[in-house]
Design a protein around this nucleic acid. Structure first.
Length: 499
RNA sequence: GGGGGCAUAGCUCAGCUGGUAGAGCAACCGCCUUUUAAGCGGUAGGCCGAAGGUUCGAAUCCUUCUGCCCCUACCA
């Protein structure tokens, strides 16, 4: 838990004694700090009204400088006793770092030319009872930063900048997709069958229907039902959930863009992907970017991005090919220290690929034509039924996009679903999604589809080493008693809603 | 799940091979009406993450636990 320092409580009471509401109801008709700066830049000395959080106070006897911060920036305030009056000047001693105040005053500059609001009056808007972090270093402790992101945000401007960029990226993704004729849709997050990807799901339960539900691991199968329904271009910026490990590149809930385009295919998806990512980067960073620096790696974004076949890359880096025998693949895997016990041939092959190839794909590279057995939702190539029309886009060794020409043969789909179910793999769906097969049976137009990891794209653009740096509230273990107070009756809380 | 690292004041950090706790910022009290990581003088603040152990003596050494970080595994 936390302790409120006595000096702050004392000041809170001091405010109330003076008839000041430490939690004011409102402070309307303000301009932003950014607007105030613009007015000062324009050379005037207008009267303005601003509001924000006090980030610094420098007392000078009968005057004081304060720094006021709002979401548009920081501006200096100058409180002079003679200007704001004896009483108000005395009361300003009750202000602390972290408090919110509203100020009226005249814009101008100090003799060092710093833009400043010379306060005529001020109003306490919110008393802060906990001291902010150290003013120079900010909040460094990563655990506190993630657990108390609100502090991280107001103490560390670079953190705020990352999340502003993230927001920009997401809105530019939407703009690009809409401009290309895609319709944004929302599909269920609670699924009766966890399909559309291979991953362990989170399980939940609906009481009234007495039904097991899974948090979606991907929206794919619902979006493709919409293609059957005649919505030819759809996308969803979606949160999906996977009950798996946490790492610098994995959070149990994460954001994807999934998009489906009728009459297109995976080549079309490559064009869409490249255009979309280039657009998002250019708009987010405000300029056409040819090279991105990610964690010391130079990423060349210029020109058309490379397209290399899965099989060629595998051959080149590991000596294994798609036609290598079972024992060749096993030997190779063993040499790489990959666990081979009970792992099937194609999965092993893919692990060899991940081990030997992925890290080397720094510049954007479309890896194309994956083996069919690890691509259960992709169409087979016409000239090679063992290879699927599928690509993954890698940047900086990270998988950013997975896409394919969508399988729309209901009988083939049903067969591949059955094979998945039969593996009894924990990550495979427990049953065949017959409604989806039925949808395909009504006929789904040929289509390309793609799924893009938005968090990872934002990592690249903001040069963030960990996915947690681009997720406002990453999942952390709950610490004993630190975040909540137990209810007074000693029970575990609301039993109606706890399962 | 396996391996390594970290945990000291509200915050950022020192604390050597064991001898009983330090700085800066923030806070409090003074002085200061143009400072800007303001300055000067003073004060207060700690069960050194938790529990055991070794020792005359533990922030320091050992064990266990908790949390976080990194690597690894599963995955995107």
């Amino acid at each position: 838990m936390f302790k409120i320092p006595e000096d702050r409580t004392r000041k809170l009471e001091g405010m109330r004694e003076r008839g000041i509401n430490p939690y004011a109801l409102r402070y309307p008709e303000t301009i932003t700090v950014g607007e105030a700066h613009a007015l000062i830049e324009a050379g005037g000395t207008p009267e303005v009204r601003v509001a924000g959080r006090v980030m610094a106070i420098r007392h000078h006897g009968k005057s004081a400088f304060l720094k006021l911060k709002d979401s548009t920036g920081m501006i200096q305030l100058y409180f002079q006793r003679d200007r704001i009056g004896e009483d108000e000047y005395k009361a300003y001693k009750l202000l602390d770092l972290g408090d919110f105040v509203g100020v009226e005053g005249e814009c101008g500059r100090t003799r060092t030319e710093e833009a400043t609001i010379f306060a005529n009056s001020y109003k306490v808007l919110t008393k802060s009872l906990l001291p902010p972090p150290e003013k120079w270093h900010g909040l460094r402790d990563v655990e506190l930063r993630y657990r108390h992101r609100y502090v991280d945000l107001f103490a560390n401007d670079d953190v705020t900048a990352v999340f502003r960029l993230r927001s920009k990226v997401v809105s530019e993704i939407r703009r690009y997709m809409e401009d290309d004729g895609f319709l944004e849709v929302e599909t269920p997050m609670m699924h009766p069958i966890a399909g559309g990807a291979t991953a362990r799901p989170f399980i939940t339960h609906h009481n009234t229907l007495d039904m097991e539900l899974y948090l979606r691991i991907a929206p794919e199968l619902y979006l493709k039902r919409l293609l059957v329904g005649g919505l030819d271009r759809v996308f969803e910026v979606n949160r999906s959930f996977r009950n798996e490990g946490i790492s610098p590149r994995h959070n149990p809930e994460y954001t994807m863009l999934e998009a489906y385009q009728a009459y297109s295919d995976y080549y079309g998806m490559m064009e869409l992907t490249e255009g979309l990512i280039k657009h998002a980067i250019a708009k987010a960073l405000g300029t056409e970017i040819k090279e991105l620096d990610y964690q010391g790696k130079k990423i060349n974004l210029a020109g058309s991005w490379a397209r290399k076949s899965y099989s060629d890359l595998l051959q080149e880096k590991s000596g294994i090919s798609l036609t290598s025998s079972e024992s060749e693949v096993r030997d190779c895997a063993k040499k790489l220290g990959i666990e081979t016990e009970g792992i099937d041939h194609w999965k092993l092959l893919n692990e060899i690929f991940e081990d030997t190839v992925e890290a080397s794909l720094i510049d954007p590279t479309f890896v194309i034509d994956y083996p069919v057995p690890i691509s259960p939702l992709a169409k087979r190539k016409e000239d090679d039924p063992n290879v699927a029309e599928r690509f993954e886009l890698f940047i900086a060794g990270m998988e950013i996009v997975n896409a394919f020409s969508e399988l729309n043969d209901p009988l083939d789909q049903e067969e591949r679903f059955r094979q998945q179910v039969e593996t009894k793999d924990e990550e495979a769906p427990a049953e065949v999604d017959m409604d989806y097969v039925m949808a395909l049976a009504y006929g789904m137009p040929p289509a390309g589809g793609m799924g893009m990891g938005v968090d990872r794209l934002v990592m690249l653009i903001t040069n963030s080493p960990s996915i947690r740096d681009v997720i406002l509230f990453p999942l952390l273990r709950r610490t004993a008693g630190s975040e909540t107070t137990p209810p007074p009756d000693g029970s575990d809380g609301d039993e109606d809603s706890c399962q």
